[in-house]
Structures are given as structure tokens and as C-alpha cells.
Write a protein that binds this DNA or RNA. Structure first.
Length: 813
DNA sequence: TATAATGTATTGTAGACAGCATGTC
DNA sequence: CTACAATACATTATA
């Protein structure tokens, strides 16, 4: 089928496609068009990676827009959102406008409403539906990229529920679901009332094989000699071999450390095959990488890059990641050793893919668990760049003949596992049922069940017994925590329930936070008031707590002990009436948010147990909630890892250097940013919850959040809020005696200039931002104050290098 | 005796979405 | 209960 033969496209689009070198559609694309893709027909396309899925989506969206509609493209990752947006922007000359909406790339509702295509993550769409974004009901076409992810335990249910809701809001909605090749795509099509296009066709040949001994054995029976001798391991030999053919390699390994060490080793293989130009370019890239952050990871990566190799995993700062990805696409880097992140992420095709490790440690499983077939196939799908390589090769490694047979059996010949809905899990239903009630989708148990009947789970099981059981458990939980109210048959969300849903919090996180804040409130209450009533504002006759996931509301367990402590503290406060009332400390708040299910836990290493147990007792009084017993409570372990996270955050908010933090907690720079971002978000939510409940701790929460946001101590909060002033500049100014915005406005300009190490432009901008009357520095000379000089010597002695702009630290979007 | 080569116990393990209010070198 | 690579440390071979 030629582009010109596709019905219902906007004028000019066919020419554009032809101009892009598309003479005729790929078979699966043609099949999709024949199935009515451009006529508004719903469709599930289950086809291999890189076989033109995006074009299928584009055809559907463009034709829908041509009919006067509006399209939504749902991506699984934020990074993909911007990638897709750029891709779609080539239609702008045909009058098609594109917008993005993700957590860190926000656009106003009106602006989005005016766009023809909107790209968003599934969570963002869910959130928009919850908050009744006006344009949602104008949608006529929705594309769900990588729908097989409904199988994902954590994030799958969101996609599932979101699609169900969108279909409910707009019954005529065209749904185009793009999936990797999975066996049961038909079930997904049933669920969505869609046509199915299933194909194994690829535009570029993919050969899968297993390397064993001195050769790769391919699935088509052919072999390729790649000798391995003592000095060269399998991976190195294969990388060298690809490079001699002029191709680059992607190596998948199972841990971050392996990725780093493998990259280091590959450097040797690659380096001796580089020419001088490449070396020079790599040198520049290495410098750029070094300047992203002055951590060890950053240095290690730069060292690798100098040799033309790199590692890639979630511990990297996002700037690192994109630098590496871009350089690999430009063929400057010859090898990337990566954890599976890369397979799911942005498009980084490569001539050859090596899957070194096919098993990964899994604590729940209790050992090394083989990767899913689907996951392996996704990695393999990165092999071969259409138009550039004659074919792609995916190679698994084995050490003996038996393993080789197993690998063929398990992965090369095998079909991927069927996709199964994970919706019936309690954590998923907790959050989605509350949202469904809160946004008015359903107001009774029956209504909820009816809605759930429109999900993939219902289609797949055909039996809603489990669903209704879990629904009841979850409803009890929500009611017990005052998120919903039941009156006869009607269910409605409480004030706080609405807030929780709007904030996109897991209700369990919200319950934990509320309990923690209430704990602080009661603590404070007993200092302030002597009447002794009213400090228990929960309903007196509270129903027996439902044990959801073993979670029992902390305030229930606390009862007696609070009374005990009360008497003690009261005795003390009698002595000193002027003592200000207790108020949550930052560490206490960090610990509180760190133990919610929304915060990804830090791993306790050996020796950490002792260290943190000690710290735990030191800070016992600061915790917002009852500390589990060290000896009898399994929850103590979790308490400690939350404490570790809390300490990390506390270090960050105390201006500890990034590399000190990475060293102390055994994390990468990317992890720090991630943790900080999550904490910032949760503290924001906590602030709103405290506000809604009119707790006195609101201010303390806000302050803790600000400190996390800017990464500074309390005394710098005022300064760090000024635009262009981050944690480093704020500290410099402070050391020079400029302690507040008012100081910044009034201090002699020369002093400010001195404190900012003579950067005239920066100083002017900052003075302007702080609202100084006359920010111009004309004729002003640098004044070296004593404190500034001392501070500078300090700085220069331990870090001689000059980092002018390393203070943006957060929120790079 | 210093050093290199080899054997053995120990250690640690992937990933990343969301609110809100405004704006990075 | 299951693995395995990297590392740290211990032992043995070698100049």
C-alpha cells in the first residue's frame, strides 16, 4: 500500500511520507489501515519493536484530527514523552499542534486544550482524569504505547484503569494499543473491542544466537566464528568482532556494578581501534560528563568515555544518561554496558546486542531469577538500525553446551509470556477505587464493580469473585482511614479523601503521613494544654482496623504509650513553661515520608543495621510515630531503611557534598536526585494534608520541604529562593555576611561581587532578581571581605577546580 | 625475603511515575 | 533453597 492510498489523511501527509522515503507501508501497517485504522476503528497492534509502530499511531491520530478530533498519546516513561513530541512535531507544517504533559513538564490546561496531539505518561493522564481536565472529553483518539505494560505490578493497573475510564467518558473513542509481540494480544483486543493486527514481521532482519566456545550459533542454523582465548572474555571478543565490522554493541548485564566494570574492560578493546579524531571528540565528551557532577560515578564514566565505551544505569544523573545515549546514536561511543533500563527507554539501536546475564537477583524469589522472555526480546529488539545496518544480531552468552540448549529453548524459540492484568492487587485498588469514587465515576459498591467490569482483569478472568472480595477489603480500609463515607448504599469521598486522590498519593502513604502528623499534633497538644481532652479527634468508636497488607494505623498502637509519655513531659514542662511546644523536626518529617509506600526504599547493607540502630535511639524522640521494637518487630528493619533514606535527605538538606552522599550511602548521583524529588513531592503532599486538617505543623512541613527543594540549611532558605541562587551561591553569600534578601538588596555591591567570586554577569542578574533598585555594576570593583577570602581559601584548598554553574542541582526541566 | 600468581571467603545485587508554583548556565 | 562477579584476603610458587 502506498501512502497516497491511505484514506482520510490530512492533505499533504502522503507526500510528506513519500518524501521521507516511505514508498509503501510495511505489511503490518498496511494491515492496520485495512482494518480501518484511519477510519476511526480501534486496533491492537502486536508487532516487534522498530517495525513501524509509531507510524501506525501517527496515521490514526492524523486521520482523527482530520475529522476534527483530538488525539492523546500515552507513553510509559517521561523520557519517551519528549522523544515522541519531537517526532510528531514534524507534522506542524500541516497545521497539527503537539503538546506534552508530564509530572515535570507542565503546561496549562487551556494550552493543552488547544493542541491536536497531546503526549503524556499514563500517570499524568490518570491524574488529569481525576482532576477533570476539560479537554479529556474532546478526545477522539487515544494511543497507548507499550500496552503490554499493563502486566507491570506497579504501574500496569494505572494504564488499565485509565484506558477504561477514557473509554467510559467517551464511548465512541478510538483506541489504538501498541504492544510488543505477545501471545495473548487477542485478549487485549477483546477488552478494547478492537481489531487485532498480530505480526512477527521486521523491517530489518534480526538474527538471534547464542555464543558458546568459539562461535555464535544463530537461530537459522548458521554460525559465526568468534574465537575466545584466555586473554579475552566472550563479551570482549564479541565487541571487538563487531567493531572490526564497523558496528557498535549494546551489552546488557544484570547489575549496576557489572555495567560499570564491564564498561571499563571494554574500554581496552575499543580504545586501540579508535582514530585520532574520535579520540579528540571523546575527550571533549568526557570533559562534559565530568562537569555534570563532581562525583566518583561521574569520573568513572568520563574515564570510560575517553576510551569509547560507557555504562548506563539508573544511578546516573539524567544529564549523564542523555549524553551517553546521544553519543551512542552518533556512533561516537562504540559500546554501552547497560542494565535493562536502556531496553525500556529511549531509542538506542545498535548493530549487535549482547545479553551477558540472563538472570537477575530477586529477593522475593530468593535467588537468581531468569528474566522474562518478553524482557529479553525487548533487549534483542534494540539490535539493528533500519537503513544503517544490513541486519541486527542479538547474542546470548553461554559457557557450556547445556546452557546453550537451555537458552535456545527458553528464549530464542520461546514465545513471550502472556500479559496478565495485575489490577486485583490491593495496593492498586486502594488508589484507583478512591480515585474512582472521588471523581464521581461511581458512588456505590455496585457502581464500582460495574466499572471494574470494564477492565482487562474482568475480561481475562471472567469471574469477579476475587475482585469483589478485594474491593470490600479496600473499601473497609478506606472507610477506616476516613477517606470515604458510607451511608446506606451510597459511598462518597470525604474532604480528605478528595485531597488524597487529587494529590495522586497512595492512600496508604496518606494514612501514614496523617497518622504521623497527628502524632506530632498530640505530642504538641499535651505540652500546650492541660485540660487533657480533645487530643484525640478520631472517632471514639473506631471500627476494628482492617489489616490491609499487615498495615495497622500507627495511632491505634500508640494509645497507652502516649499517655505515659504525657505524664513525663508534663512534669518537665511544669518546670519550664517558656519551652516552645514540640514541633516536628526535619529528620522526623523525612523519616515519615521515607516510610510511606510511595518512597522507594534504600537497601540496608551489612553493618548498616548496627549504625542505624544506634542513630535510631539517638533520634528516638524525633520520630513521628511509635518506633517498632528492635527485638520483636519485623517492622524494625523497614524503620531502619527508612531512617537511612531520611539521613540521606537530611544530609542533602545540610549541604553535604554530593560525592560524600554517594559514598556514604552507596548510591549514584541519579539516586540522590530521585530520592530528593520524591521527598519533595511527598512533603508537598504532606503540607497540603496538614493544611486540610488544620494541623499546626504545616509550617514545619513547608520548611522541611523547602530545605529539600533547595538542598540548604535553614539559614539559607531565604537566599536560596532567589532565582539563580542555588545551594552553593547561597552559602558563599552567607559566608560573606549577606544573610538575607534584604542584605542582598542593601549590601555594598562590591561585597556581593566578591562573594560571588567576581562573576559580574551573574551578580547583576542576581541583584536584578532580588529586586535591587539599581543592579548595574558599572564602575563597581570587587571588594574582598575577610570572610569571603577565608571562605575562598577553604574552597580552593579542597576543590581547586572551578565550577561556575553547578548549582542548578534540581528541577532541570 | 619480596613479589607475583593462584586459591578462597565475603559481599552485594534493576527500575523511577505523581502535586504545585515558577522559571536554569 | 537456588547465582555469580568483583573484591579482599590468604596461601603458595617463584626470582
Amino acid at each position: 500500500m502506498k501512502p497516497a492510498e491511505i484514506p482520510e489523511l490530512p492533505p499533504g501527509v502522503d507526500d510528506q511520507l513519500a518524501g521521507e522515503g516511505i514508498e509503501s507501508l510495511y505489511p503490518p501497517q498496511a494491515e492496520a489501515v485495512e482494518a480501518g485504522l484511519t477510519k476511526g476503528e480501534s486496533l491492537v497492534a502486536s508487532v516487534p519493536t522498530a517495525s513501524g509502530k509509531t507510524l501506525i499511531a501517527e496515521l490514526a491520530m492524523l486521520s482523527a484530527i482530520q475529522r476534527g478530533g483530538k488525539a492523546l498519546y500515552i507513553v510509559p516513561l517521561r523520557a519517551l514523552a519528549s522523544e515522541k513530541k519531537t517526532e510528531f512535531e514534524r507534522w506542524e507544517e500541516y497545521g497539527i499542534s503537539v503538546g506534552v504533559s508530564t509530572g515535570n513538564y507542565e503546561s496549562s490546561e487551556e494550552w493543552l486544550a488547544s493542541r491536536d496531539i497531546i503526549v503524556a505518561t499514563s500517570e499524568k493522564v490518570d491524574s488529569l482524569v481525576r482532576n477533570n481536565a476539560g479537554w479529556i472529553d474532546q478526545l477522539s483518539c487515544v494511543v497507548a504505547d507499550e500496552v503490554h505494560l499493563v502486566d507491570d505490578r506497579n504501574r500496569g493497573p494505572t494504564l488499565e484503569v485509565t484506558l477504561a475510564k477514557l473509554r467510559r467518558i467517551n464511548p465512541g473513542l478510538q483506541v489504538v494499543a501498541l504492544s510488543a509481540t505477545v501471545g495473548n494480544a487477542g485478549e487485549i483486543a477483546d477488552w478494547l473491542d478492537a481489531e487485532l493486527v498480530h505480526s512477527e514481521w521486521r523491517p530489518i532482519d534480526l538474527r538471534m544466537g547464542v555464543h558458546f566456545g568459539n562461535a555464535i550459533n544463530f537461530d537459522d542454523g548458521s554460525q559465526r566464528e568468534v574465537p575466545v582465548d584466555r586473554s579475552q572474555r566472550q563479551t570482549e571478543a564479541l565487541v571487538g568482532d563487531t567493531l572490526d565490522e564497523g558496528g557498535s554493541t549494546l551489552v546488557f548485564v544484570n547489575s549496576r556494578r557489572n555495567a560499570e566494570s564491564a564498561a571499563k574492560r571494554q574500554g581496552g578493546v575499543v580504545e586501540r581501534r579508535l582514530d585520532d579524531d574520535e579520540k579528540a571528540e571523546l575527550q571533549d565528551l568526557a570533559e562534559e560528563i565530568r562537569s555534570v557532577s563532581d562525583t566518583e560515578t561521574s569520573d568513572d564514566l568520563a574515564d570510560c568515555v575517553e576510551n569509547g565505551s560507557a555504562f548506563h544505569h539508573a544511578g546516573l544523573a539524567s544529564e549523564h544518561r542523555s549524553l551517553v545515549e546521544d553519543a551512542f546514536r552518533d556512533r561516537l561511543l562504540k559500546v554501552i554496558c547497560a542494565t535493562p533500563t536502556l531496553a525500556a527507554g529511549v531509542n538506542t539501536p545498535s548493530r549487535r546486542v549482547i545479553i551477558r546475564d540472563w538472570r537477575r537477583y530477586d529477593g522475593e524469589f530468593g535467588g537468581m531469577k531468569p528474566l522474562d522472555v518478553l524482557e529479553i526480546h525487548q533487549m534483542c529488539g534494540r539490535a539493528g538500525r533500519p537503513g544503517l545496518d544490513p541486519y541486527g544480531e542479538a547474542v546470548l552468552l553461554s559457557k557450556d553446551a547445556d546452557t546453550m540448549d537451555e537458552l535456545f529453548e527458553r528464549y530464542v524459540w520461546a514465545d513471550p509470556e502472556p500479559v496478565r492484568s495485575k489490577l486485583a492487587a490491593e495496593p492498586a485498588l486502594r488508589t484507583h477505587l478512591l480515585a474512582t469514587i472521588s471523581s464521581g465515576f461511581a458512588n456505590s459498591r455496585e457502581g464500582l464493580l460495574e466499572f471494574l467490569d470494564a477492565t482487562l482483569y474482568a475480561t481475562q478472568t471472567g469471574d469477579d469473585g476475587r475482585l469483589s472480595t478485594v474491593t470490600d477489603t479496600v473499601l473497609d480500609y478506606l472507610e477506616a482511614n476516613d477517606f470515604i463515607e458510607r451511608e446506606d448504599e451510597t459511598i462518597r469521598a470525604t474532604n480528605i479523601g478528595h485531597t488524597v486522590s487529587r494529590l495522586y498519593l497512595d492512600p496508604m502513604s496518606a494514612a501514614e503521613i496523617i497518622d504521623g502528623l497527628r502524632y506530632a499534633e498530640e505530642d504538641r497538644g499535651k505540652d500546650e494544654q492541660s485540660t487533657g481532652e480533645s487530643h484525640r479527634e478520631r472517632p471514639a468508636a473506631e471500627p476494628e482496623k482492617v489489616e490491609t497488607d499487615g498495615f495497622v494505623s500507627a495511632s491505634d498502637l500508640v494509645g497507652d504509650e502516649t499517655e505515659d509519655e504525657t505524664t513525663e513531659t508534663e512534669a518537665e514542662s511544669d518546670v519550664d513553661e517558656t519551652q516552645p511546644p514540640a514541633r516536628p523536626t526535619p529528620l522526623g518529617l523525612y523519616h515519615l515520608v521515607s516510610r510511606t509506600p510511595d518512597m522507594y526504599e534504600l537497601y540496608l547493607k551489612s553493618g548498616d543495621r548496627e549504625t542505624y540502630t544506634e542513630i535510631c535511639y539517638e533520634h528516638e524522640a524525633e520520630f513521628l510515630g511509635r518506633m517498632p521494637s528492635e527485638y520483636e518487630d519485623v517492622a524494625f528493619e523497614d524503620w531502619l531503611s527508612a531512617l537511612k533514606t531520611a539521613k540521606l535527605l537530611d544530609d542533602w538538606a545540610s549541604e553535604v557534598d554530593e560525592d560524600r552522599i554517594t559514598e556514604r550511602y552507596g548510591v549514584g548521583p541519579g539516586d540522590i536526585r530521585g530520592k530528593v524529588e520524591t521527598a519533595d513531592w511527598l512533603l508537598g503532599a504532606a503540607e497540603q494534608l496538614a493544611g486540610t486538617l488544620e494541623f499546626s505543623s504545616t509550617i514545619a512541613v513547608r520548611e522541611a520541604k523547602k530545605r529539600i527543594e533547595y538542598g540548604v540549611r535553614e539559614e539559607l532558605l531565604d537566599l536560596a529562593g532567589v532565582r539563580n541562587v542555588g545551594r552553593k551561591r547561597a552559602r558563599r553569600l552567607f559566608e560573606a555576611g549577606i544573610e538575607s534578601r534584604a542584605d542582598l538588596r542593601n549590601t555594598e555591591k562590591g561585597v556581593v561581587l566578591g562573594a560571588l567570586r567576581g562573576r559580574r554577569k551573574t551578580t547583576e542578574t542576581i541583584l536584578e532578581n532580588v529586586g535591587r533598585e539599581d543592579p548595574s555594576l558599572d564602575g563597581v570593583d570587587e571588594v574582598e571581605t575577610e570572610t569571603a577570602a577565608v571562605a575562598r581559601e577553604d574552597r580552593e584548598s579542597d576543590s581547586g577546580d572551578e565550577h561556575s554553574g553547578d548549582q542548578s542541582s534540581l528541577g532541570d526541566f
